[in-house]
Design a protein around this nucleic acid. Structure first.
Length: 882
RNA sequence: GGGCGGUUAGCUCAGUUGGUUAGAGCACUUCCCUUACAAGGAAGGGGUCCGGGGUUCGAGUCCCUGACCGCCCA
């Protein structure tokens, strides 16, 4: 190609589309499977457990940031000769997709319905949104989800392609596709057989809006405003009552006990007696508990089924009655006082009062019960109103489902759990065997694991998701036996129990006495996504491939899901395979907006990436992302993009200069060339070490700095004259050879960061010379790129020359003289120990600054500063007149 | 309340095991169309390294302590 014909600037958009096509054509990023029947050793490959993006989410620069950081590692390892396994998955499980499908097609999933093959629905345009939605089977619903999410995946795919992610697109999966459903169900069967899964009817954290159980990891505390209500209780058979403080008076009817701290003198005399609840007149035990805080409220409190997690604990430990009054929909259930489990000293009055509460929501019931508490209570409190004083406002932390708007309740339901609490030591030890980058992120995992308080609730009462491959036998009386589920056979997966018939039954027995009842729950989405390294590597399906790829090398992810995605993935790998899932976890930071707030859809401060790619080019955007280290949150700053773009332009132009030179490279015999290459070799060593330490930002910073200051500002200036042949063929050949080697090394050092410009320049000459059609398939620079360089003495001449150039620049700028103006004569002064170096570099400096005459003198007093720097100063300078 | 990070120039950030006068880019000021690059180059000004103590010949860096910001957990 004719380099002199090249434009002044690099056309990023054109280059990006043509290189993407070229990389596909060459298969540069394809993972090379081991030969049939063979395994690939862990040393030969580098496997990445890519985070499957949530396709229904919005694209923003945060995606670009974290995925680029992973791509840097992939490209580095590939150039180091590893066969890189870099798949891409799509996370289309979960509520957002479910909602979108419901609205888009105006349908509802009904797990009780059977699959309709070939059901063809179109977008619900024109359909009255208020009309009853069409009910379809889960399998049909899943098909619609897949259809819709494929559209979403396109925009992600376009972005990933544009950004130059070196993903192997042959390795694609989506978390709701048949392969992932099969893996999730296989995981369930394996854990079930190993005894790690149990189902139990017990109080579980429950979201009343979504009407589903939620796991500890999906729970967050929010501070909300509430009130302490001071409520008088009576004591059975005695005159003295006491006053409790509660934020949840609506649960009074569910009160099953009263407790205070064992050392609390105020209440010690009550322990062992029974309290009488106001309004409902229910006798409940009063017991001491260390968990009661004497400082909080009045120090004595009511235990309800169930106000919070501590209530659940007291209920278990004290074997209290279970009087659940809250239904799954968040409304108070109808109950009958006077019947078994619902004692009262005045059932009739209790039922009258409770009738005003039944059917109401928590908030409505709270208001109603507070009104009731204001009226005198003859039955329990001898004419006193139960409410003592007015409610006092307070702010307190309340547990919420992270996606929910109403406080979580504890509701007794049957749920499946993975037993974790007995595995803490094993899980902690596994975390220690994994290398975390940055290292301190290890604490997040450790803290979470140590504080784990519940087993993993894996069943969700949702419609869209991977169904449990489970049925229940129905006895002759028509009652389902939930204690003894029938689990599916491995070869039948994936299946939906709503369609499939359990082993040993016929379809006619569905729902019949003596037949079977399908489970309608689906898995927690983490139950599937915790299998990503296993799914991608062919767990349970391709044994050789699985052994070649698992455990993987790297899990990249963000820090807020260490307790979920990282944690559950470790759980699964241990329970299924008794191994850690990967050797390294790389935690990317967050992108903050210019006000240092996290970028998020809800805040409305999201910056989308596409226009940035258009304006600055992909390489510049990658440059910005690569500038931040792992784990470092970074404020978005368009200035950095400008700098990246400038670097791309500089690389383009410097390459034009180097490769556009006429002349024949020769042996590297010139001292300055040799010294420069020694420095460059040092840079290669450092950059390599930084990459190995997962500190890509250091590799970039050092490479960029050396490229700019040592190469383009100094070395090119010093060798320029020689490249023209003015100093003889030997000096010219040495300079040209040095430039060629140096540029080839720089391009490859930059290649992981700037894949487009580097491959473009590579194609001008190096591709043909090396036989590597793409720089991304070439070898990472190493000592092998450098000719045998003798360890000659004057290694310091480069630094001295650079100092001298700076000094002359200062003089030139100070005099307001164009750098085009030649110098007639100049004198440079050096301190004694730098003087020989200055003398040795004198000719190179003279050529670089285009001086007719350059003198070096020694000045001992320059030494007084005591600096290590050569300290070259200009003593006299005279420019050729303009 | 516990844990983990952070606080360095107006802004965004580097600063590796303690070591000369603490760096870069942007922004600002001045100069320069130059031969690969004016979408460029050269130079300059700008810092109590959050505060307080300590260790040390020497601290942005290590230790203690306080403040503030953020995240995770309770």
């Amino acid at each position: 190609m004719d380099i002199s014909e090249l434009p002044k600037h690099f056309d990023t958009q054109a280059a990006e589309s043509s290189w993407q096509a070229r990389w596909r054509e060459l298969g540069v990023y394809r993972y090379a499977e081991a030969a049939a029947g063979q395994e690939r050793s862990a040393q030969e490959r580098f496997a990445i457990d890519t985070p499957p993006p949530t396709v229904s989410g919005s694209l923003h620069v945060g995606h670009v940031f974290s995925y680029t950081q992973t791509d840097l590692v992939a490209r580095f390892e590939r150039m180091r000769g590893k066969s890189v396994f870099y798949p891409m998955g799509w996370d289309d499980n979960g509520l957002p997709t479910e909602r979108r499908v419901q609205n888009y097609f105006h349908v509802r999933c009904n797990p009780g319905l059977k699959y309709e093959p070939g059901l063809d629905l179109s977008a619900a345009e024109g359909i009255d949104p208020k009309s009853p939605p069409r009910q379809i089977s889960r399998r049909n619903f899943i098909e619609l989800c897949l259809r819709l999410t494929q559209e979403d995946e396109k925009s992600f795919k376009e972005l990933w392609g544009r950004l130059g992610l070196s993903v192997d697109w042959a390795q694609e999966y989506s978390t709701i596709d048949p392969r992932c459903r099969r893996a999730a169900q296989r995981s369930f069967l394996d854990l079930w057989r190993k005894g790690h899964i149990y189902s139990v009817e017990a109080p579980t954290m429950w979201d009343v809006d979504f009407q589903t159980a939620v796991a500890q990891a999906e729970v967050e505390d929010r501070k909300i405003a509430g009130h302490f209500h001071h409520v008088r209780f009576g004591v059975e058979g005695g005159a003295d009552g006491f006053t409790i403080a509660t934020t949840r008076p609506e649960l009074l009817a569910a009160c099953v006990g009263v407790t205070a701290h064992p050392n609390d003198e105020r209440y010690r005399h009550l322990f062992g007696k029974r309290a009488l609840t106001p309004l409902f007149g229910v006798p409940v035990p009063i017991f001491p508990s260390e968990l009661a805080d004497p400082e909080k409220g009045t120090g004595i409190l009511m235990v309800c089924t169930f106000g919070d997690a501590t209530d659940v604990r007291w209920w278990r430990e004290q074997k209290l009655a279970n009087r659940q009054i809250l239904g799954r929909n968040g409304r108070l259930l109808a109950v009958q006082f006077g019947e078994a489990n619902w004692p009262s000293i005045d059932p009739q009055r209790a039922n009258t009062l409770y009738a005003e509460l039944a059917g109401r929501s928590v908030k409505q019931a709270r208001r109603a019960v507070v009104d009731q508490l204001r009226a005198p209570d003859e039955a329990v409190l001898r004419g006193l109103p139960p409410l003592a004083g007015e409610p006092t406002p307070l702010e307190h932390p309340v547990k919420f489902f992270e996606k929910g708007d109403q406080p979580l309740e504890f509701i007794t339901t049957r749920q499946f759990f993975v037993r974790l609490l007995d595995k803490k030591p094993m899980l902690l030890e596994a975390g220690d065997r994994i290398q975390w980058h940055p290292e301190f992120m290890r604490h997040r995992y450790r803290t979470w694991t140590e504080n784990l308080a519940f087993d993993w609730a894996i069943s969700r009462q949702r419609y869209f998701g991977v169904p449990f491959p489970v049925w229940y036998p129905i006895d002759a009386a028509g009652e389902a036996d939930y204690e003894n589920p029938i689990v599916a056979a491995d070869e039948s997966l994936p299946l939906d129990p709503a369609d499939a018939t359990p082993p040993g039954f016929s379809e006619e027995q569905r729902g019949m006495p003596g037949g079977f009842l399908p489970e309608s729950d689906v898995f927690d989405t983490w139950f599937t996504s915790s299998l990503t390294p296993m799914i991608a590597s062919g767990w349970g399906e391709q044994p050789e491939r699985f052994r070649s790829l698992f455990p993987m090398d790297l899990r990249p992810q963000s820090h807020e899901i260490i307790r979920t995605w990282a944690f559950y993935t470790i759980v699964k790998a241990l329970l299924h395979e008794d191994r850690i899932p990967w050797k390294h976890v790389a935690i990317s930071g967050w992108i903050l907006d210019p006000d240092r707030k996290k970028m998020s859809k809800s805040r409305g401060n999201v910056i989308t990436p596409m226009h940035l790619l258009d304006e600055y080019g992909s390489d510049a955007v990658r440059y910005w992302a690569a500038g931040a280290g792992l784990g470092a949150d970074t404020a978005f700053d368009p200035n950095v993009l400008k700098v990246g773009k400038r670097l791309v332009t500089k690389l383009f132009n410097a390459s034009k200069f180097v490769l556009g030179k006429e002349g024949r490279p020769g042996p590297i015999v010139y001292p300055m060339d040799r010294v420069f290459l020694l420095r460059l070799r040092e840079l290669v060593r450092n950059a390599t070490r930084h990459f190995e330490n997962y500190e890509h930002q250091q590799a970039l910073a050092e490479t960029e700095r050396f490229f700019w200051t040592a190469f383009t500002d100094a070395y090119i200036e010093m060798s320029r004259a020689r490249t023209l042949g003015t100093q003889g063929a030997e000096a010219q050949g040495s300079a040209l050879a040095t430039l060629r080697i140096a540029l080839g090394v720089f391009l490859r050092l930059f290649a992981p960061f700037l894949p487009y410009i580097t491959d473009e320049v590579w194609s001008w000459r190096y591709a043909g010379e090396t036989g590597c059609a793409s720089i991304h398939a070439s070898a990472w620079p190493s000592a092998a790129d450098f000719p045998e360089l003798s360890a000659g003495g004057n290694d310091g001449i480069f630094d001295v020359a650079v100092e001298a150039l700076y000094a002359i620049n200062r003089s030139r700028t100070g005099a307001g003289v164009s750098s085009a103006r030649e110098i007639k004569t100049a004198t440079l002064a050096a301190k004694p120990e730098a003087f020989p170096l200055l003398q040795a570099a004198c000719e190179d400096i003279r050529l670089a600054v285009r001086a007719d005459e350059l003198l070096a003198i020694v000045e001992p007093q320059l030494d007084e500063a005591g600096s290590d720097k050569p300290g070259i100063e200009v003593r006299q300078i005279e420019f050729v007149s303009a």
